[in-house]
Every structure is written in C-alpha cells, then in structure tokens.
C-alpha cells in the first residue's frame, strides 16, 4: 500500500458515495444531452425511426430558415432588454428597500410573482394589456388617450413581454442584491461618511465594487434565463403577432412538439446552447476583468 492511499476499500467507497449523484447525472444530464446531439444529425418524428442526415439540419437552420434566424434576433432583444432594464431595477429596489421601513414586507411583496404560476401571470397580463378591454388602455381612454396596441403591434408585443418578464423576475434578483448589500460592513460606510463621501460616491466606490460578485452572478444568470425562457411568451403571445415575439427556445419547442421535427428542434436547441455558452463566457470574463 502506498503512503498516500487510504484504508483498504476506500477507493470503492468514494465511488459508492458518489454513485447516486453520478447516476443522476448520467440519466438526467448526459444521456439526454447525448441523445439530443445525436438527434440533431437526424430527421426524426417520434412515430418512426431516426434517419441520419448529417449536418443538414444545421445547414437549413443557419442558411435557409428565416423564422429561425428571426427567432435568434428576437431572443437577443428579449434577453438584452431583460438584463439592461431588469438588473439595474432589481439593484435599485434592493438599495431602496435596504434603507426602508418594513423592508421585509416590501421584499416579500416584490417576490410574490415568483411564487405564482407563470401561465397565470401570462393570462393576468393579457387582461391588463388587452388592446380593447385591458385595464391600462381603458384607463388611458378615460383621459382621452389611445393606448398602445400592447399585444397586437409587433414592437409593442416585444416590449410587453420584456416588461412582464422584468416584473416577474425583479423580486428574485432583488433578494440576491439585498443579501449582498446586507453583507457590506457598516464600518466602511461610517469611514466614508467621516471622509465626507457623498451618497453617489459611496455607491460608486464602495457598494458596487463590494457587491460585484453578486452583480456578475445576477447579470449572467439573468442573461441565460432570458436567452432560454419561453413559457411566459408561449402563454402570453404564442410568439406572435406575426412571429414578433417568437424566441429560439419557443421555436425549438414548437418544432419538436407541434411540428414533430425532433432533429431540427435538437439542432436549434444546440445552436442556442452554444450561443448562450459563448456569450456567458465573454460576459463572465469581461465582468471579472473589470473587477
């Protein structure tokens, strides 16, 4: 027995303890991913048997399928809007509530949408935003204003789903920022006060640098969420009007479960995963380098 080895059987024991986790990973991660990669090189509807088509699904999606390319653009718009507006908003809310009375109550209120079923949220906002009967346009009508066509105009439909997504997710990110803000040592603020730092200077030079890990985490996870999220859009606009809110994850879902094109859906999902991976890596490095 070598000096570094543990007791006899320790090697097997560690594998035994790891086995449930490994089994889970194999069954629920590696096998489905491997099957999905395999399917992306095939043409298959689940009624028959897959037929090998090589790279044709990728070639079709990237060179001939305008709907797919448009869905990629829509995905970027959705994710970008979600991050650019949603992350500062969550940070702002966390900052305001960290100094507010009854902050626990405020945080709970803002977290409530997270506890609600996303389909219920979609229907709720459909009622609020309906062009003719919606609460917002009815109220605007009372003061003589014609409200936007929230769900039937292509541009406004994208704005609507981004805003609802921000509303839905703000509470979660706010809690992460709140935890980070609570962890900042009060002595640092006291020292800054003694040195005559303004509130803006304190925020810029003390708070933000200290909570940067939380900021990186929230930004990257929000971006990944935005790139892959489609349940809200499916229930709220169905990808319409005229494909204006059709994001790539929704495209892949439809391709798989409505059009029964599992091969093309897998290829679309892999392209999306690759795009998310590359951008998340760039984002992570950029944000880390700055720190």
């Amino acid at each position: 027995m070598d000096a570094g080895d543990g007791p006899v059987g320790a090697g097997r024991a560690q594998w035994l303890f790891l086995a449930p986790l490994l089994l889970f990973a194999v069954v629920f991660l590696i096998l489905p991913l491997g099957f999905s990669i395999y399917l992306s090189f095939t043409r298959w509807n689940p009624l028959g048997t897959p037929s090998w088509v090589g790279l044709r699904q990728f070639e079709y999606l990237l060179t001939r399928d305008d709907d797919f390319l448009r869905s990629l653009v829509n995905t970027f718009i959705f994710a970008f809007g979600f991050v650019v507006i949603g992350v500062p908003l969550a940070l702002g809310l966390a900052f305001v509530f960290s100094r507010a009375r009854g902050k626990a109550v405020w945080r709970q209120i803002y977290y409530l949408p997270q506890l609600t079923n996303i389909v219920a949220i979609a229907y709720l906002w459909q009622f609020v935003l309906d062009d003719r009967y919606g609460v917002i346009n009815r109220m605007l009508g009372l003061v003589g204003l014609r409200g936007p066509d929230w769900l039937t105009d292509p541009t406004m439909a994208m704005v609507s789903v981004v805003l609802v997504m921000i509303w839905y997710d703000a509470g979660k990110n706010m809690l992460i920022f709140s935890a980070a803000l609570e962890a900042v040592d009060q002595d640092i603020y006291d020292a800054a006060n003694l040195d005559g730092a303004t509130a803006w200077r304190t925020l810029r030079s003390i708070t933000l640098p200290i909570i940067r890990p939380a900021f990186i985490f929230v930004t990257i996870t929000s971006f990944i969420t935005g790139m892959g999220f489609f349940a809200l859009i499916l229930a709220m606009t169905g990808g319409g009007p005229r494909g204006a809110t059709d994001v790539t994850a929704l495209y892949a879902y439809r391709m798989a479960f409505e059009d029964l094109r599992m091969g093309r859906a897998s290829a679309a999902a892999l392209i999306l995963a690759a795009v998310i991976g590359v951008i998340a890596l760039i984002q992570f490095r950029a944000l880390r380098e700055r720190s």
Binding site: D131, R132, N137, L140, G141, L145, R146, G147, G238, G240
Partner: peptide, 18 residues
C-alpha cells in the same frame, strides 16, 4: 368606434387562436 378610434362594436370578426 369609440373616441380613441378603437372598434367598440365590430360588424365582423376573425377568431384569434394560437
């Protein structure tokens, strides 16, 4: 149509379905 030029009573309608 109402004051905001939105249709209030429609003479004809298409059904909206996903």
């Amino acid at each position: 149509r109402n004051d905001q030029d939105r249709i209030e009573t429609a003479g004809f309608a298409f059904a909206q379905s996903s």
